[in-house]
Amino acid sequence: MNIPFTAQLINMCAALLLLIAFAMLSQRRILSLINLFALQGLILSFSTAVVAYTTSQHHLYTSAALTLLLKVIVLPLILHRLIRKLNIKWDVETMFNIPTIMLIGLALVVFAFNLAAPISQMAGTVTKSTLGIAMASVLLSFLMMITRSKAVPQVVGFLAMENGLFFAATSATYGMPLVVELGIALDVLVGMFILGIFFFQIRVAFDSLDLKHMEKLKED
């Protein structure tokens, strides 16, 4: 096996991303969850930079820098401030049975790899082997959104899903055009602000950020 060092580096990053996705899936503490999210952003940014270096796609450096700025610094900071203001820093979530969720997650990973195999064969990028992992992390983040009962972890799940999509784009086609990426970055930022405002509103209306209270909104 003679895989170049950079490709090995990218594969390692992909493996780490998958690991972090599982870690997020099983993490009960909100604070740790945000830290994991920041770590995921860091690895994503690093792997994008490596891809940029390997393939000399210079716009990917910009993407990497953007990811670093937004997902490692700005968004975690906002989230930290939010949980401090909402005073839920040490909240522990009640969740479904974690081992069951992990098992479902494993099944999803198998599904994602199976799904990505034919696409990977067609793609001519050095990163093609990581497409399966990217899709797996998208699905795992989605699963995380479904299993969480509180608002903040759901938002973190949403942001992690965006990370997975970004990674999928990088590994399949060396990233989207810069304009699209800038647009998505702005969307995520604005979405975060709006959701932050919603947190306060939900808290005022229901005295809690537990989303099961919102079931009352249903019309009978």
């Binding site: 599904f111 799904l115 959104m145 479904i146 969480r148 099961k212 079931e215």
Partner: peptide, 20 residues
């Protein structure tokens, strides 16, 4: 159903079904 998780599950299952 009124539960956000159930709604998310709908989209998730739809996504999986479409992917499959």
């Amino acid at each position: 159903h009124g539960r956000i998780h159930v709604y998310l599950l709908y989209s998730f299952v739809t996504l999986l079904a479409l992917l499959a």
